Amino acid sequence: MRIGVMGTGAMAAALGGAWARAGHEVFIGGRDTAAAATLAAQIGAAGHGTPAQASTYGEAVLLAVPAGTAPSLARQHAGALTGRTVVDCTNALVPGPGGVMLTTDAGQSVAGLIAAAAPAAHVVKAFNLVHVSHWHRPPLPTADPAPAVPFCTDDTEAAAHITELITATGWTPIPSGGLDRAPYLEATAAWAIGIWWSGNSPHLALPDTPPPA
């Protein structure tokens, strides 16, 4: 698959690198084109340039930018993103008195704001629940079952694209409903990250118990 990556930060490097290693054609686009060139060389990307060039590069586009700027970036390139799968991996989080908090309004998601900004794009929420370091390496081959990436989207073709991209990282896709479910996925990230920061593991609260027979 051809994938345009808008951004040159940690998630751009981690996911772009994972996809390049899996044989996908990745294009890094950044406002700082020198940084885009450096990152492209580091991960073995097929090309580099500006965010505008990344927005038109392939079937899928990763918005690997801060959550606060992702909707405006999508609006700026809305025409170019028409018909493309746009992957939102962001978390809009800030520290609060009781732990990590969302900066979006209740019932709202960054993914939903991106979809409103680029209404002809096919937005997917994914890759926002674990630390960026996980995407630099595949899961251990002994992991059974493989760890999973939940995703939300309204579009069948986008679901197929994100399934391929998740599988390329060595993880298992978990369809988690339409984009109206993205607020729950983003809220889960706020909860999980808060638990990690407190020195505990969210996995302990979610044991994999089979349903009753």
Rank of each mutant, 00 (worst) to 15 (best):
M1S: 07
M1K: 03
M1H: 08
R2G: 00
M6S: 07
M11W: 11
A13W: 05
A14K: 10
A18I: 12
W19P: 01
A20Q: 11
A22C: 15
A22I: 11
G23S: 09
E25T: 06
V26Q: 02
F27V: 00
I28V: 09
G29R: 02
G29S: 04
R31D: 09
R31K: 10
T33D: 09
T33C: 08
A34T: 13
A35E: 14
T38C: 07
A40R: 06
A41Y: 12
Q42S: 14
I43P: 00
H48G: 02
G49E: 01
G49S: 02
G49V: 03
P51V: 00
A52Y: 07
A52N: 04
Q53I: 01
A54M: 00
A54Q: 00
Y57V: 00
E59N: 02
A60W: 01
V65M: 06
G68A: 15
A70T: 03
S72G: 12
H77M: 15
A78L: 13
T82K: 10
G83H: 14
C89W: 03
A92P: 05
V94D: 10
P95I: 04
G99Y: 02
M101K: 13
L102I: 04
T103N: 10
T103P: 02
T104Y: 05
T104G: 10
G107I: 11
G112P: 02
L113D: 14
A121G: 11
A121M: 08
H122M: 09
K125F: 08
K125C: 06
K125V: 02
N128C: 06
L129P: 05
V130E: 10
H131Q: 15
H134Q: 09
H136D: 07
R137Y: 12
P138L: 09
P139A: 13
P141W: 14
P141G: 13
P141H: 11
P145Y: 05
P147H: 08
V149G: 14
V149A: 15
P150L: 11
P150K: 13
F151E: 08
F151N: 11
D155L: 13
D155R: 13
E157Q: 10
A158G: 04
A159V: 05
A160R: 15
A160L: 13
A160W: 12
A160E: 15
H161K: 11
I162W: 13
T163D: 15
E164Y: 07
I166E: 03
T167D: 09
T169D: 14
T172P: 08
I174L: 15
G177R: 03
G177H: 04
G177L: 04
G178D: 05
R181D: 13
R181N: 14
A182D: 07
Y184I: 12
L185Q: 14
E186N: 01
E186P: 01
A187I: 02
A187S: 08
T188N: 13
A189P: 00
A190M: 00
W197F: 06
G199M: 12
G199T: 07
G199K: 14
G199H: 11
N200W: 15
P202K: 03
H203F: 06
L204A: 08
A205I: 04
A205W: 12
L206D: 07
L206R: 11
P207N: 12
D208E: 10
T209N: 15
P212N: 10
